[in-house]
Design a binder for these strands. Structure first.
Length: 574
DNA sequence: GCCGTTTTCGGCCCGACTGTTTTCAGTCG
């Protein structure tokens, strides 16, 4: 049983309880716990071993005991009992858009429906309309929902893909008739690594006009819902977008609401109630009926006696408490980054020459650029041997001479951590390079003990400055290697080896939760794009978002440092 | 089932949209 199964099991429990008609707050508790577990991933095992489960948000005594049972035995009696009472096929029924627990229970109890196929047949034969509250249109909607569910690919897309779609749509919206302003909200604004749908906010004094403009967007394939202030759309490629329209005077509260997360919003609204205020996307309502409008988002927080909380922190993972106590971190910003520590060139599998990479780095105002091509062990990437390194050094010096006002170009390497735990170059070769990144690219499926042996040896090697993309995961495509992240972070902190937050949108590795733990343990980090083309320097924004989600302050990030400080650190570390 | 500048018991966010309804329940975010 994996840790992902753990999150899924708790989500299934929430759904089954809901179909059973259990109290909503009990259901919410399991759902909340499931979200917490999903955000953690494998780290839950480390937390469990440390006996700190109940410190997790939404985990109390009862749920901690269930997590314990699951991790010890791989089973959960409570879940098995529940699954025996409520047919598991109903969980598929629940996935159909527009069907919630009440409908699912109704289908089951009144028509004996326990699977998607049975539901489809009942809808086709007109049986569903016999139920109270159901009519022909509901049947048609359900059939469409089943079809969409079957044809749907992976639910969530990469942060970068969502970002591009959003930028394209915003560009259109901002020119729209009756639209004063438009911006991104939702999980995209919070910088989550994957995005379910786009949430965009539009400011307008004339909502009907603005809505008309929204609906004129060329990439809409279907209008899923359409009200006076809110519309839900399907775009080409299947991505969905929700657009809210609010007057500028309410922009702040609307943006706060649309950004979420839902759990964060619930906490804020609870806080408001304590102060005799009711908070919604429209602003605050006083008990006496008065209203407080928020044109700026900061005013929402200010009204509650809080400093503005950066969107990336709004996951109900302690940020509200930290805000109350005035200990929100000073998060790293993209403008803090002074250079790039991990870039490839045509010397290995990069698509641009060192000169081309350096020219763009210069245009971006970088103070330094590390060319860190692959080592020979990664044959598929045309890795470098010792002789290549010598000739590459000459080219770097030539480029440096040509771009005298450009960034300082350093020669690094992304050296392979081989399957036996040794590195692809002997120490004396590594010692001759300006910066060494050690990464795993192969034998990622080894068992935990061997993977950890490799990682720890690399961390302990005094010539290794940074560990690249620690877990090797590819989002939506490849699971992380089986490693004890806690142990790796502790070793990195002890040896002063930095850890990369790889900003490539497929990787984002370290991920947010790992980065947060790394900072807690005193690790140094580097936000690296792993650029194989000058355009990839733009990935910095995704790396920074991930770091911010991990509560990472600028001073913990190597490449916010000046060249002098960086060189001094590199010198001392060796 | 969780949780505490109201509380270890008694609370637990708020509104838009849809489809079915003559005033609302269910779903969603």
């Amino acid at each position: 049983m994996s840790e992902r199964d753990l999150a899924d099991t708790f989500e299934a429990i929430a759904n089954l309880l809901e179909i059973k008609g259990e109290p909503a707050y009990r259901v919410m508790a399991y759902r909340r716990a499931s979200e917490t577990l999903r955000g953690l991933g494998p780290e839950v095992r480390d937390i469990w071993e440390r006996g700190e489960l109940q410190a997790l948000p939404g985990v109390g005594k009862a749920i901690a005991e269930k997590i314990d049972e699951f991790l010890r035995t791989g089973r959960l009696a409570f879940y098995e009992k529940l699954a025996a009472e409520v047919p598991a096929g109903l969980l598929d029924v629940l996935k159909v858009e527009g069907i919630g627990p009440k409908r699912a229970a109704q289908f089951w109890q009144e028509l004996g429906i326990t699977s998607l196929d049975a539901l489809e047949q009942a809808a086709q034969s007109g049986q569903l309309r016999s139920l109270s509250g159901m009519g022909p249109r509901s049947e048609a909607k359900i059939l469409a929902g089943i079809e969409a569910l079957r044809g749907r690919e992976t639910g969530r897309i990469l942060l970068s893909q969502a970002w591009e779609s959003a930028q394209a749509m915003l560009k259109y919206l901002k020119r729209g008739d009756g639209i004063l302003h438009a911006d991104v909200a939702g999980s995209l604004r919070r910088g989550r690594e994957t995005i379910g749908d786009l949430d965009l906010l539009v400011a307008s004094d004339s909502p009907s006009k603005a809505l008309e403009a929204v609906l004129g967007y060329g990439r809409i394939t279907r209008v899923l819902a359409r009200g006076e202030t809110k519309t839900s759309l399907e775009l080409q490629g299947g991505l969905r977008a929700q657009i809210w329209i609010h007057p500028p005077a309410r922009w702040g509260s609307a943006m706060q609401y649309a950004t979420g997360s839902q759990a964060h919003n619930v906490r804020l609204r609870e806080l408001a109630l304590v102060q005799g205020l009711s908070l919604s996307e429209h602003g605050f309502r006083r008990i006496d009926g008065g209203e407080i409008l928020c044109r700026e988002e900061a005013k929402v927080y200010e009204t509650l006696g809080l400093p503005w909380i950066p969107p990336e922190l709004r996951e109900d993972r302690g940020e509200i408490q930290a805000a109350k106590e005035g200990r929100l971190p000073e998060l790293v910003e993209i403008t803090d980054l002074r250079g790039e520590l991990h870039a490839h060139s045509t010397w290995s599998d990069g698509k641009a020459s060192i000169l081309e990479m350096a020219q763009v780095a210069m245009d971006m105002g970088m103070e330094y650029l590390v060319i860190s091509d692959h080592s020979k062990g990664l044959g598929i990437a045309g890795g470098l041997n010792v002789e290549d390194l010598r000739r590459q050094r000459e080219e770097i010096e030539a480029v440096q001479a040509r771009l005298s006002r450009g960034p300082r170009i350093l020669q690094g390497i992304e050296v392979e951590i081989l399957a036996d735990g040794s590195l692809d170059f002997p120490d004396e070769v590594l010692a001759g390079l300006d910066l060494v990144i050690a990464s795993l690219h192969s034998s990622l499926k080894q068992e935990r003990g061997r993977i950890m042996h490799r990682i720890l040896r690399a961390i302990e090697n005094p010539h290794v400055d940074i560990i690249g993309h620690l877990t090797g995961r590819l989002i939506n495509r490849r699971d992380p290697a089986d490693l004890d992240v806690e142990q790796a972070l502790r070793a990195a902190a002890m040896h002063g080896t930095a850890l990369e937050i790889n900003a490539h949108p497929d990787r984002l590795d370290l991920k947010d939760a790992h980065a947060r733990r790394a900072v807690e343990l005193g690790c140094l980090l580097a936000i690296n794009t792993d650029a194989h083309h000058p355009e990839h320097f733009g990935y910095q924004r995704f790396g920074v978002m991930t770091a911010r989600r991990g509560w990472v302050p600028a001073q913990a990030v190597l490449n916010t440092w000046s060249l002098e400080k960086l060189l001094e650190w590199l010198h001392n570390l060796r």
